[in-house]
């Protein structure tokens, strides 16, 4: 559905995207991750035909975005990061314009506008001027605009940026609803968002592919395994030994610093087993120690990056 081959984009001396490769099948939702300035937006702009790559190729539905721009663009709905809408237009009027600009007949555009407004929940605001809408509603109108003409591919650049938590949840569940029917590329630098929404993850840094794989990749940065943070009071050595014997625990590290309020911190590396946490809790409590904290450690994107980028450069042992 989407294929990117050796894609490179240079702006003068800066290399924004550097020999990027990935593919995406029909119905998959791709989380496109990277810190600010990693080249996510540049890649998306190439995919939507806003500018051509310096070298390499990008295909949408098997159509080269440079050689056959019209069929490729017809297959794509795009939502840029800044959500640039014509703020002096009314919602429905705007969507009908988009439909006609995408080549629909006026009657068809009207029908599509109704369908897309209902799909994103802005049908109550059809007659309102876009400039009077809140950020969340503008985002929805932007999404509706991308859905006009029912394109099989959606390219969404940071679709939840600047929204309040409630709106973020709504937009995410909307996007999850596309799974199976539409191919979605979703860029983000928010880790849990991608873990919650996507079926595949591509991480880039400084324009280069750092990792590609299932969303579990993000939990630890190594494609599986979790870690727990445990605070318990008792002798550090005895507790370490106790924790190591819990089935599913791979390693235990004890922090020598005393935790505020007594007890010690332990970092427990576990497999992908979800039941480990409860077994750890049970073991600590049954041995007569006080368990004051037990929480899963989710690696921050920065940590994942640190791990992935350093392991890449140090011979790729861990990335394998």
């Amino acid at each position: 559905m989407i294929e990117v081959r050796d894609l490179t984009k240079r702006f003068g001396a800066t290399v924004a995207v550097d020999r990027l490769n990935f593919t995406l099948d029909q119905g998959e939702i791709l989380g496109f991750l990277g810190p600010n300035g990693a080249g996510k937006t540049t890649t998306m702009r190439i995919l939507t035909g806003f500018f051509p790559p310096t070298s390499g190729q990008a295909f949408i539905n098997g159509r080269d975005v440079v050689e056959e721009p019209m069929p490729a663009r017809r297959a794509v709905g795009y939502l840029p990061e800044s959500v640039p809408l014509y703020v002096d237009m009314r919602v429905e009027e705007y969507l009908r314009f988009v439909g006609e600009a995408k080549g629909l007949a006026p009657a068809e555009a009207k029908r599509e506008a109704g369908r897309c407004m209902a799909a994103v929940g802005v049908d109550q605001r059809a007659r309102q001027l876009i400039k009077q809408l809140s950020k969340g509603y503008r985002q929805r109108v932007g999404l509706a605009q991308a859905l006009m003409g029912d394109p099989p591919v959606l390219i969404l650049d940071e679709p939840t940026i600047g929204l309040d938590p409630g709106q973020i949840v709504e937009i995410r569940s909307l996007i999850r609803g596309f799974a199976g029917s539409k191919t979605v590329v979703l860029s983000s630098h928010i880790l849990p968002e991608v873990a919650a929404t996507c079926s595949k993850v591509v991480i880039i840094n400084q324009g280069r592919l750092v990792a590609e794989g299932p969303p579990e990749l993000l939990r630890t940065g190594r494609g599986g395994g979790n870690s727990l943070k445990v605070r318990a009071s008792g002798p550090a050595e005895g507790l370490t030994g106790l924790l190591e014997e819990v089935p599913g625990v791979e390693s235990v590290a004890c922090s020598l610093e005393e935790a505020p309020g007594g007890g010690c911190w332990f970092t427990v590396e576990t497999g992908v087993d979800d039941q480990v946490a409860s077994r750890v809790a049970k073991a600590v409590v049954e041995a007569g120690h006080a368990l004051s904290e037990l929480s899963p450690v989710t690696a921050s994107l920065e940590d994942v990056f640190m791990q992935l980028t350093t392991s890449e450069t140090s011979g790729g042992e861990e990335a394998a």
Binding site: T48, F50, Y78, P84, Y86, Q145
Partner: peptide, 13 residues
């Protein structure tokens, strides 16, 4: 200036 051109040029026109 407003960036709407980016969206406009992503349409098949």
């Amino acid at each position: 200036k407003s960036g709407t051109i980016e969206l406009l040029l992503s349409y098949p026109l």
